[in-house]
Write a protein that binds this DNA or RNA. Sequence first.
DNA 1: ATGGTAGCCCTGCTA
Length: 260
Amino acid sequence: MRFATWNVNSLKARQERVEEWLQYAEPDVLCIQETKLSDKTFPQLSFGALGYEAVHHGPGQWNGVATLSRVGIEDVSSGFGDSVLDPYEGDARMLTTTCGGVRFVNVYVPNGREVPSEFYDRKLEWFDCLAKWVDANAKPSDPLVILGDFNVAPEDRDLWSPKAFKGSTHVTPKERAAIARLQEWGMQDAFRVVYPDTDKLFSYWDYRRGDFHEHRGMRIDLVLATQPVIDRVQWALVDRQARKGKLPSDHAPVVIDLAD
DNA sequence: ATGGTAGCCCTGCTA
């Protein structure tokens, strides 16, 4: 089974490239973030024509998440549930599905904007809700994957320049502790299972200053998986090709291959 | 040197 996560920065602007990518990368499951679409304008039929079932959760204009699968989509839910007050209430940042026997939690973690700020505080609260949701809804022995745009670089080696990010979001100890908390619960960074010692493998590059071509990026698109999934990991890659050419997203897809 | 770009639907906001 091949699955992937990709922040497309507007599915409307990226539809052609996403369809092209599906055809050459052939993922069984694709988790998309930042569709910037409403459920009504989500192009269900276009993906159906390519052999993918799809579910979408989004208000339009901002954020929005979608999961595409050609190995079935079951047990669909969005957000943390009715009993939880979402710190980013109104946004669509989490979509949970079961595809091909694996539970996928597709997340678009809030950006946080600035440290300190009210948005940063609510980003940390959002992470707290996620950790509590995972604990209440899954066990470390379940085949579970939490993947998406985490808007956190787990370590300094996931940054082109730690100095350049001093004092900004994505790198603070509190954000990194939120990732560590999920790892302590029983999840591992699947990308690091394949690349334990390789630094500067980025998944995001700012559009500005020619950052992509100057290799100034960050690894903020993550795949966290429980042991039953980790045991099946065969290969992982960032498809940098998808960040090149005409009208790219500022993120590249992160792809994981599992043994069947 | 507090910059720069892209996408929203708008002339500023979000990333």
